[in-house]
């Protein structure tokens, strides 16, 4: 087995009497595309915040990129990238300004920054758009750029929050091509989503219901276990009896 870059053991987060995350355990290997699924309110976001070093768990153990979530939050943050559909880039900065800004923030050495920015822009085919405002790009390009920026500082793990909701089928596939490529280069991809069609692309998925992990397997195995043809139906079987749902 490859290196474990994320390990969770009996991880729990309580808000008062409320178990947002209840005793979850899983491991994620290096280069894996790991789907973290659940309805709104199932506890996905809370769990992801812990793993990103933004909040402390109530009990249990977890480490990310080899660093402990209780004591080494700052080290964790240096080793991860993050992208969400809602916010990732500054719309009123140009493509180049966004890349250099985020590169700088995440500690890409100044000496390399210029050359690597140029390479990235060339690779994305945005040479002519480098000086244009991000706001003027089509949605699909924005997402590709956002992902590239999220892995620009070569993190060990990248967290993606509902990365492809609402884009057209072709753009979505181009986006997943990039994710596959990143994974093939050894970056671990952690996708949280409630869009089940995004789940189909993951190597393994966990499905969270009411703060607990209800299933953890590859999409193919889950589908055959429930004898259904899509992740949608797998999810429906597992989540229809959920008590909790929020926004």
């Amino acid at each position: 087995m490859a290196d474990k870059v994320i390990t969770c053991k009996n991880l729990t987060k309580k808000f008062g009497d409320f178990y947002a995350v209840h005793n979850i355990s899983f491991d994620v290997s290096q280069g894996e595309i790991f789907g973290f699924l659940g309805a709104n309110g199932a506890g996905k976001t809370t769990a992801m915040r812990i793993l990103c070093g933004l909040s402390y768990p109530t009990s249990g153990e977890a480490s990310v990129a080899g660093f402990d979530v209780y004591t080494q939050q700052e080290r964790i943050k240096q080793n991860i990238g993050y992208m969400s559909q809602k916010f990732s880039l500054y719309e009123n900065l140009t493509v180049l300004e966004n890349i250099t800004f985020f590169g700088g923030v995440y500690g890409v050495p100044a000496a390399q920054l210029k050359e690597r920015s140029r390479q990235l822009i060339a690779k994305l085919g945005l040479t002519n758009e480098a000086k244009k405002l991000v706001a003027s790009l089509p949605l699909g390009w924005k997402q590709k750029l956002a992902f590239s920026v999220a892995i620009f500082h070569e993190p060990k793990i990248v967290f993606l929050d509902e990365p492809t909701g609402g884009v057209d089928p072709v753009t979505r596939r181009q986006f997943w091509d990039m994710i596959y490529e990143a994974a093939a280069n050894g970056i671990t991809v952690f996708v949280t989503t409630h869009y089940m069609d995004e789940a189909e692309y993951c190597d393994r998925v966990t499905i969270m219901v009411d703060g607990k992990v209800e299933a953890l397997d590859s999409p193919g195995n889950l589908k055959s276990r429930f004898d259904v043809t899509s992740m949608d139906e797998v999810f429906y079987r597992l989540a229809r009896n959920a008590v909790r749902s929020g926004d």
Partner: peptide, 10 residues
């Protein structure tokens, strides 16, 4: 149905 979970969509 945008942004609504699978169960509610069904």
């Amino acid at each position: 149905t945008t942004g609504v979970d699978v169960v509610s969509r069904k």
